[in-house]
Design a protein around this nucleic acid. Sequence first.
RNA 1: GGAGGAGUAGCGAAGUGGCUAAACGCAGCGGACUGUAAAUCCGCCCCAUUAUUGGUUCGGUGGUUCGAAUCCACUCUCCUCCA
Length: 307
Amino acid sequence: MKKILIVAGPTAVGKTAFGIQLAQRFNGEIISGDSMQVYREVAIATAKPTVSEQNQAVHHLIDTQSIYDEFSVKEFVEQADQKITEITARGKLPIIVGGTGFYLNTLIHNFKLGAEKDEHYQKIEAEYQNLLEEKGEDYLWQLLFKQDAVAANKIPKENHRRLIRALTVIKSTGHLFSKQQEELPVKYDAYIVGLNTERELLYQRINQRVDQMMSDGLLEEANLIYSHQDKIYQAKQAIGYKEFFPYFEHQITEQEAVDLLKQSSRRYAKRQLTYFRNKLPVNWIDSVKKDTRYYHVFKEINNWLTK
RNA sequence: GGAGGAGUAGCGAAGUGGCUAAACGCAGCGGACUGUAAAUCCGCCCCAUUAUUGGUUCGGUGGUUCGAAUCCACUCUCCUCCA
């Protein structure tokens, strides 16, 4: 099984710098494990590694898409798998650095994702969307319950997106959504380093980074997304754009939008932490207050590499 | 000195006799997640405890009442206006 090193952690803890450090130390190349750094037209809100940072270690899966492209886990896993193969063949260590827990999880566990999202799929999805509007969430949930009680019991009826996805998968593949979720053996020998620090410190860093983004010209970038939003699918969901939409529409002040952005970022950090804590076997270290554990991890990685 | 107004959980803010440990928002915390995941959704949030239940609350004190954040008296603090 191929070895991959993973660096996970909430936004703004310092994953980029730490990843570079690891790459230099363990002869590695970095693969971005991030759902938003793939878009080449933007860089500020997504906190993409700077040119000089990218020069300090080889980076992959950055700038591979246009903001007008659709992108999802599927593309990520395909691309990452290929990069891992290439890097390993070169005799180097693949290091996945990123905050998108779902992507990392899917990569190492090789989740089955269901049928192709072709026209047929889109049609089914649209049908359920209409059903939801006509008959409401109760109806949709009952529908799922009749088809796949296990799945229905795991999805609250308020969670429309997941409800529709489950129903669509069942109809397009012919098998149960819950069946698709069977555990599979892991695909990689992964050592996962989790970066974290005291909550208060983390929030401080988040707030500071947002201010930095503002002086780097975030408004302009957000405006680009705002003015083309009809043609943009996933990229406009990034934190740092939608918070400014009401500002562009004169609903709120710039300061209010900035506060909103900080709020979204803090909440996001918490969601990330929850995901990593409960879904992945993470070796946690404090990346800000570097204690003994911080240095101990390098030794652990060495042991894991020679195993 | 005179006339009004306000004091509610960390903050903001509802609530004018029982259905109120007290709506709602913010802040804080926890959780779910198998093709939008920086998305989507849920829970906790006075104190103690397990789902339970118990205890102490609505500036303070004392009353009225079967029952008060809600009514009365006194009192403290703050705000506005007039002197």
